[in-house]
Structure formats: structure tokens, C-alpha cells
């Protein structure tokens, strides 16, 4: 009887433990993240500077300044002249001419065959 009671108690404890462990594993609580302040974004940024921070030579935009912060040199090139023909027009024209010539040749063959049949 005592053995049976002990066995039942051990079984109950095992069941409680077995059900409790998965409950922790399935709960994605944010608590562990908060409990680990060493992984804060600031620390990561200090150890791994972004490419933007590396561009120390690039002056900041002047959107909040009261003047031009970097004066460009020279005059702006704000006019792309009409490009010379890239050949596409010539190719299209040649293709159309070839199609017309082929059509004309076909017409002549049919006409000659009909004439020969008569």
C-alpha cells in the first residue's frame, strides 16, 4: 500500500514537471529580452558602426541650414541634346522593306502559277 502511494506521488510529480516545461518553452515572453540590457541597440551600434557613419566626408544636407553648406563647382549640365539615331529606325525600315519585298515576290509566284494553269 505504501509502495502504491509513493508510486502515485512520484507519477504525479513527473506529470506536473512534464507539463510545466513545455509551457515555458511555448511562451515567447519579452521578459528575457528586457532582462538582457547588454544587447541594447546602442551597444550594437558602437561595436558595428553603420556605413552612413563611415561617410564622415559627406557634409550634412542643408535643409535645416540658413544657406548653402557646400557650394558646387562649375555650371550644371541640365540639357541632354537629342541623341543621334541609334540605328533602330534604320533597322525597322529595312525590316519593313524586306517584308514588302517578300510579299511582292509571293504575289508574283501565285500570279504566274494561275497564268500557267489557264
Amino acid at each position: 500500500m505504501r509502495r502504491t502511494v509513493l508510486s502515485a506521488a512520484a507519477l504525479a510529480c513527473t506529470a506536473v514537471l512534464a507539463s510545466a516545461v513545455p509551457a515555458f518553452a511555448d511562451d515567447p515572453s519579452p521578459v528575457p529580452d528586457r532582462a538582457n540590457p547588454s544587447a541594447s541597440p546602442a551597444d550594437v551600434a558602437e561595436k558595428d558602426p553603420s556605413p552612413v557613419a563611415a561617410e564622415t566626408d559627406t557634409p550634412a544636407p542643408a535643409e535645416d541650414a540658413d544657406g548653402v553648406t557646400v557650394v558646387p563647382s562649375g555650371a550644371p549640365d541640365t540639357g541632354a541634346a537629342t541623341a543621334p539615331s541609334d540605328g533602330n529606325g534604320t533597322l525597322i525600315g529595312a525590316g519593313a522593306a524586306a517584308a514588302l519585298a517578300a510579299g511582292g515576290a509571293g504575289f508574283l509566284v501565285v500570279r504566274r502559277r494561275r497564268a500557267a494553269a489557264e
Partner: peptide, 17 residues
């Protein structure tokens, strides 16, 4: 973008072709 935002003090520069 190195000139002021339009409406702020200074010469804001806009270019176009």
C-alpha cells in the same frame, strides 16, 4: 540638398533639364 529647403532663409536651388 545642400541648399535650404524652399521657404527657409537662404537660396534654395532646384534644377531641371
Amino acid at each position: 540638398r545642400h541648399s535650404p529647403t524652399p521657404g527657409r532663409k537662404g537660396p534654395s536651388v532646384i534644377l531641371g533639364h
